[in-house]
Design a protein around this nucleic acid. Structure first.
Length: 429
RNA sequence: GGAGAGAUGGCAGAGCGGUUGAAUGCGGCGGUCUUGAAAACCGCUGAACCUUCGCGGGUUCCGUGGGUUCGAAUCCCACUCUCUCCUCCA
């Protein structure tokens, strides 16, 4: 949610950011007009209330309260009627009223981009920040992960389809164990970087989903439970970030680093026909998520650290990858700045996103009403929130299978994972 | 699912329908004392919003939403959540 104070103070910043995203900045003037109107109504309402409160107080102080009340009755009744109508008008305009157009505009407008975000309208304008690792020459025709996994008997898409339809997988045997090893490896590394581990609910209230900005009425990509009251999380970012909603945190506890391994559920409604084969785009996948809550002045440095925490997992797995700065048009609604990490897939002969790390600045925290106090006397301020995958588990399996495949169809286990698999060095047919 | 109890400030915990935004304690901040610290003592200490150049003024908030009243933390209704017991269950 945008800061109304920023819009009043410097609307041009917001307009410029919207233009960079390729959006029409007209909403800025709409907001300012509604805001001015609201404040006019509110001032009038409060003035009238103050008048009525003062009269009530005189009754409270009077010796004969009944007589005083009777005497003031006509004035009080008139004021009450005025207040009722002013209240109705103010409510329609109030920015904290969920139905109000002003609220809708504030919530429906994207975060202000950081100045460092590259110019551009789509992913072709994204900027590669750095490469890591050398793309291996396998010395034989590389297979794609689906073929590798099915031949090894560790990925079973047919039976998954029998159970649940398209976009599901059954991990079998070493596939299941490898997935579990990857999760443990990720969580252990997160712990060593100071992240606190959580197991949050996988079903959350609509209000929780809305508060993190994942439930805009334009993109309903969520699965609901049978009652429809609870939504299945599309990422652990939702419960982890919303956990401290409406709380006032101790400034000394910042930055806070949180992690969780959860399944993620997505309808992928907008991706019909894309990535229909394999583990790349499923309705259910596992992910280890990394979340930071920081002081405002620390969040951009934290984004670099967070990104490196995610990238270091691939370094330890010895999988070539690159880090990308998303351009303005490709940066998500909540984010002021986003880094993606893409792994090299020899079978697919392409780079594929495996992590997305974003600094949401105070945009998400404002809607969550998640604040901290710098010190005992300081006013509460909104924290900055960051989130990133560390990493997507399914896509990590893809990267392992394709990068560690051997000519005979076997797959070598990366050194970093062997301790989690009893020292196993290779998955063979 | 059944029965009962409860929800108040960062935490704990009072609160006859009328200066109660809220006693008290803890915590926090400042001060006195001390070589320094502790202890003791004194003072200060909720939030959002509107308004003002500023001082200040005002409105709202005691789980949520309604209602009664000139006036509600206090009375009424509904809902949510928490706790205890029973039931059920992994």
């Amino acid at each position: 949610m945008l800061d109304i104070a920023l819009l009043r103070r410097d609307p041009e910043i917001v307009r410029t950011s919207a233009r960079r995203r390729g959006a029409d900045p007209g909403f800025v003037d709409d907001i300012l007009r509604l805001d001015a109107e609201y404040r006019r109504e509110l001032a009038e309402l409060e003035r009238t209330k103050a008048e009525k409160n003062a009269l009530s107080a005189t009754i409270g102080r009077a010796a004969d309260k009944a007589a005083a009340a009777a005497e003031l009755r006509p004035q009080l009744d008139a004021l009450a009627a005025t207040i009722a109508s002013l209240e109705e008008q103010a409510r329609i305009l109030a920015p904290d009223e969920s139905e109000s157009p002003l609220r809708a505009l504030l919530e429906g407008s994207p975060n202000v981009l950081d100045a460092s975000v590259p110019v551009g309208s789509d992913e072709s304008a994204n900027v590669v920040l750095r490469h890591w690792g050398e793309v291996r020459e396998l010395g034989f025709p590389a297979q794609q992960h689906v073929d590798i996994g099915e031949k090894l008997g560790i990925l079973d898409f047919e039976r998954a389809a029998k159970l649940s339809g398209a976009r599901f997988v059954v991990l079998r045997g070493m596939g299941a164990k490898l997935s579990r090893a990857v999760v443990s490896f990720f969580l252990d590394r997160a712990a060593s970087h100071g992240y606190e581990e959580f197991v949050p609910p996988y079903l959350v209230l609509r209000e929780t989903m809305r508060s993190t900005g994942h439930l805009s009425k334009f993109a309903d990509a969520m699965f609901t439970d049978i009652d429809g009251d609870l939504l299945m999380i599309p990422t652990a970012e939702v419960p982890l970030t919303a956990m401290y909603r409406n709380e006032l945190l101790d400034g000394a506890s910042l930055p806070r680093k949180l992690t969780a391994h959860t399944p993620c559920f997505r309808k992928e409604a907008g991706a019909a026909g894309r990535d229909t084969r394999g583990l790349i785009r499923l309705h259910q996948f596992d992910k280890v998520e990394l979340v930071w809550l920081t002081r405002p002045e620390d969040s951009f440095a934290a984004l670099d650290t967070l990104t490196q925490h995610a990238a270091s997992l691939l370094e330890e797995l010895d999988i070539p990858h690159r880090v990308i700065a998303l351009c303005a048009g490709d940066t998500g609604f909540n984010a002021a700045k986003t880094h993606d990490i893409e792994v090299w897939l020899p079978g697919a002969q392409t780079y594929r996103e495996i992590s997305s790390c974003s600094n949401c600045t105070d945009f998400q925290a404002r809607r969550l009403n998640m604040r901290f106090r710098r010190d005992a006397k300081a006013k509460p301020e909104f924290v900055h929130t960051l989130n990133g995958s560390g990493l997507a588990v399914g896509r990590t399996l893809v990267a392992i299978l394709e990068n560690y495949q051997q000519a005979d169809g076997s797959v070598v286990i990366p050194n970093a994972l062997r301790p989690y698999l009893g020292g196993l060095e290779r998955i063979s047919p």
